[in-house]
Amino acid sequence: MADPQDQQNPETTAGPSSPATRQFISFRVGDEEFAIDIMAVREIKGWTATTVLPNQQNYMLGVLNLRGTIVPIFDLRCRFGRGLTQATATHVVIIVSVDDRIVGLLVDAVSDILTVNAVDIRPVPDMEQTVDSAFLSGIIPVGESMVVLLSLENLFNQTPSAGLPAIAA
């Protein structure tokens, strides 16, 4: 599942975590690397066709059957405003648990497991971001490049139906 192009950096490989370290799963969306807390990740699976829910935001791709549980799937690329992913079987869905809900994130590929010293996580710099900064919770330097830490809570608290005309329930 690791991206072949990703350079295996000694300090970023999976290893036993000590209290001061945290582990993240990093993945690729377009040209950028993102990461989420490994504790939130339930499972990683290949893309399969979803059942489309009517009248949703375009990044809401529909629902999947995950061993009997109905799981909504979101297109992260589209969530970041960069258009729909043309999902194929090589694309990956990361199943995460956020606020007691199980949701799936469609990404291009999973890259690595990062073990990071908590003090190395830097705040999001006050600079121009390609992604809405509300979705970001920090930056992890990996060698020369950096991985953007996502805030899953903020990603979904901005309710998906916000853009729709109100429909009386």
């Binding site: 059942t51 009517p54 009248n55 059957n65 009997g68 549980t69 109905i70 949701v103 139906s161 429909i167």
Partner: peptide
């Protein structure tokens, strides 16, 4: 199956089920 365990209510849809082919 409830849709609302993991998602918001969807207008016009009361719930979901899983068909024989595993699709929702």
């Amino acid at each position: 199956k409830s849709l609302q365990d993991n998602f918001d209510p969807v207008a016009g849809i009361s719930g979901a089920t899983i068909l024989g082919n595993g699709r929702v």
